[in-house]
Amino acid sequence: MRSWAAQPGTTAGLVVLVVNDHLLKQTWPGLVTGKLSDFAGPPQAPLPPPS
């Protein structure tokens, strides 16, 4: 099993978060770029290990 950092969803979310924060928010600030960060950010936090 791959680590959480190697999962495609985690990688895609990280790319979206970085592009959104460093490019899109400065170019087109507003509701959409704010919500994009809200949805792209949480998948970057790893889940606690199973018991």
Rank of each mutant, 00 (worst) to 15 (best):
D38V: 06
Q44E: 07
K25V: 09
T27L: 08
S51M: 07
G41L: 08
V19H: 04
V18T: 12
A6V: 02
G41C: 03
V15K: 02
A5C: 10
G13Q: 07
Q26C: 09
P46R: 06
A45M: 00
S3Q: 13
A5E: 08
S3M: 14
P29F: 04
P29A: 06
L24N: 05
D21P: 08
D21S: 15
G13F: 02
K35R: 09
T27F: 10
K25D: 09
L31S: 08
F39L: 13
S51E: 10
T11C: 10
L36M: 14
W28A: 15
G41S: 15
T10K: 01
S37K: 06
N20L: 05
G9V: 05
V15Y: 01
P50G: 09
L24T: 06
L31V: 14
L47A: 09
P8S: 08
S51W: 02
V16T: 05
V15G: 03
T11D: 01
S3K: 06
L47T: 01
P50M: 02
T27D: 03
G13E: 04
Q44L: 14
F39P: 05
V15A: 10
P8D: 07
A5R: 12
G34N: 13
P29I: 06
L24E: 05
P42S: 04
G34W: 06
T10A: 15
P48V: 03
P29V: 01
L17I: 02
T10E: 13
D38M: 03
G41E: 03
L24C: 07
A45R: 10
L14Q: 00
Q26M: 08
M1K: 05
D21T: 13
H22P: 00
A40E: 07
T33N: 13
T10F: 12
A12D: 06
R2Y: 06
A6Q: 14
P42W: 01
L36N: 08
P8C: 02
A5T: 15
L17Y: 04
A12N: 03
T27I: 12
L47I: 04
P42G: 02
P48K: 00
S37F: 02
H22L: 15
S51N: 01
A40L: 13
L47K: 02
L17D: 00
A6F: 03
V32A: 15
K25T: 10
H22D: 02
M1Y: 03
V19E: 10
P48M: 00
V19F: 11
A6Y: 09
D38N: 07
P8N: 08
M1S: 06
Q26E: 06
T27V: 14
K35G: 08
P42D: 08
F39W: 14
T11P: 00
L23S: 04
V32T: 11
P42T: 03
D21I: 11
P43R: 07
F39E: 12
A12L: 13
V19P: 14
G34E: 10
V32I: 14
K35E: 07
H22G: 10
H22N: 02
A5G: 05
F39Q: 12
V32N: 02
H22A: 11
T33W: 04
D21V: 11
V32K: 07
L17E: 02
L31R: 15
W28S: 13
N20D: 04
W4K: 00
P49C: 01
K35Y: 15
P49R: 00
L36R: 12
P43A: 04
L36Y: 09
L14D: 03
Q26D: 08
A12R: 12
N20H: 03
D38H: 12
S37A: 13
P43H: 02
S3I: 12
A45N: 00
